[in-house]
Measured scan of single mutants.
Amino acid sequence: MQNSHSGVNQLGGVFVNGRPLPDSTRQKIVELAHSGARPCDISRILQVSNGCVSKILGRYYETGSIRPRAIGGSKPRVATPEVVSKIAQYKRECPSIFAWEIRDRLLSEGVCTNDNIPSVSSINRVLRNLASEKQQMGADGMYDKLRMLNGQTGSWGTRPGWYPGTSVPGQPTQDGCQQQEGGGENTNSISSNGEDSDEAQMRLQLKRKLQRNRTSFTQEQIEALEKEFERTHYPDVFARERLAAKIDLPEARIQVWFSNRRAKWRREEKLRNQRRQASNTPSHIPISSSFSTSVYQPIPQPTTPVSSFTSGSMLGRTDTALTNTYSALPPMPSFTMANNLPMQPPVPSQTSSYSCMLPTSPSVNGRSYDTYTPPHMQTHMNSQPMGTSGTTSTGLISPGVSVPVQVPGSEPDMSQYWPRLQ
């Protein structure tokens, strides 16, 4: 039975679970980093996980050691009161100082060594604690504590007292930064006198190289990059290397530039699409467009005044059976039934097929058609009795279509119309 579990990581490298990497692998990681390889490249070359490479390099940059820390136990506290007071002093002298600059000053002034120097995250935590204590304490208590930490007896009751030896409130920041720059020169002199001055200088240079600022491109470089971006948004590694040799930039910087440029292009394309949609959409909808001609068919113009009344309900007709019959029939052209047409008796099958359309009241044959006459024609229609054979009435077949029909004066039988409509 094995005491430890061995495995293979996602890159194909072998590791022992819970145990640190061998010293030979750690040394190779540092050597590759000094030669300029990126952590992701080191991870692929040595088949070590990216997190492990970053952790080893980060500890090497901070402490200069590649040895693993002790497994188990607690780390001794490195942010001692003396170190905290120095950090507060540096922050007062130059409020814009960075944590890694404070760390360098602690090393250069001999406050800490490589073994007990606090990390950048520890210094940031100390600065946050100082800021929170400043908010919790009152103004007087804060000034007393700062005077105690600074070891001075001057008056701290006013704002300019934060910067000793100065009279203009805006000047101390520059003086403090100048003092810090002077301390940086002392850093070089002190570290050069040490035993491991060369190694420390190499480590600091490598650290500065990794902690780079934003790349500033010249106009020629920007023009070359934009020209390549117009050709393709995704250049391959050969195109990037050719462009890197042409404009004297690292291939990694060119790759990052193209990634950022593609993101910018997507944002601009989104804005262009929004403007295009806004320009195509009308600002207001016309009133006429809300009524579609496919839904509402136009009603033909009436030929006679009587045809303006298109349904039985508008003429005072309360018989719903006839109203439904007229509205359900398709529109037909106007025609006239003459008196000489043969009077065919209704076929029983045809009569039964339209039995649902006729009223059940037996008085329908005896009703006159003056009910369908509009009010303004009552006088004219009353002067001509319906009993004469020459009287013409208008029957409504569908809305908007008038059918003048000659009705025999002897017997106005409704059943004569249905064979004609089939």
Rank of each mutant, 00 (worst) to 15 (best):
V53Q: 05
S121V: 03
R26K: 02
C112Q: 05
A70H: 09
C52L: 00
D115S: 14
F98V: 08
K134S: 09
K28Y: 05
P20Y: 03
P20S: 03
N3V: 12
I42G: 00
I102C: 05
C112E: 00
R19T: 04
G73V: 05
R19C: 05
V83T: 08
Y60L: 03
G12S: 00
P20H: 01
D104Y: 09
S108W: 08
G141F: 11
E62G: 07
V53L: 00
H5T: 11
E82N: 10
S49C: 07
E101K: 13
D41Y: 05
D41L: 05
R19M: 06
Q136F: 12
R105N: 10
I45G: 07
E109K: 12
G138T: 14
Q27S: 08
R44T: 05
C52H: 00
V30L: 05
G18Y: 00
S4E: 11
N50F: 14
T80L: 07
K145V: 12
P118R: 00
G138C: 08
M148H: 15
F15W: 06
P118I: 07
Q47M: 09
L46G: 03
D140W: 08
V83A: 07
Q27N: 08
E101V: 11
I97C: 14
S54V: 06
L106E: 04
K28N: 08
P81E: 10
K75L: 05
V48L: 05
P76Y: 04
V8I: 10
Q89I: 13
R19K: 13
D104C: 10
G110H: 14
D41K: 06
P118T: 05
H34S: 11
T80Y: 04
G13N: 01
H5Y: 09
I42V: 06
S4R: 14
A37L: 13
S49G: 06
Q27E: 10
Q2R: 14
V53P: 00
V14E: 07
Q136T: 12
L107H: 15
G73E: 01
S121Q: 09
V8P: 04
Q47P: 00
I123A: 07
I117V: 15
L46I: 08
I97M: 15
R147G: 12
G64D: 05
K86V: 08
N129K: 15
S85E: 09
L146G: 15
R125P: 05
S4C: 10
W100N: 07
G18E: 02
Q47F: 03
S108T: 13
P81A: 08
S119M: 05
D144F: 08
L11T: 02
D115L: 13
G51D: 01
T25Q: 08
V8C: 03
A139G: 13
V78D: 01
C52T: 10
S43G: 06
W100V: 06
N17Y: 15
F15G: 01
V83D: 02
S49N: 06
L127K: 15
S49E: 00
L146F: 11
P76H: 02
N9W: 01
P81I: 07
N114C: 12
S119K: 03
E93Y: 07
N17G: 03
L146E: 12
E62W: 06
S121G: 04
D23M: 15
G12Y: 03
A79Q: 04
S24M: 09
M137V: 11
G7D: 08
Q135M: 12
S24R: 12
N3E: 10
C40I: 11
N50I: 07
G7A: 14
V126M: 08
L107A: 14
S24P: 10
N17I: 15
E101Q: 15
F15A: 02
G73P: 02
C52D: 01
K55T: 00
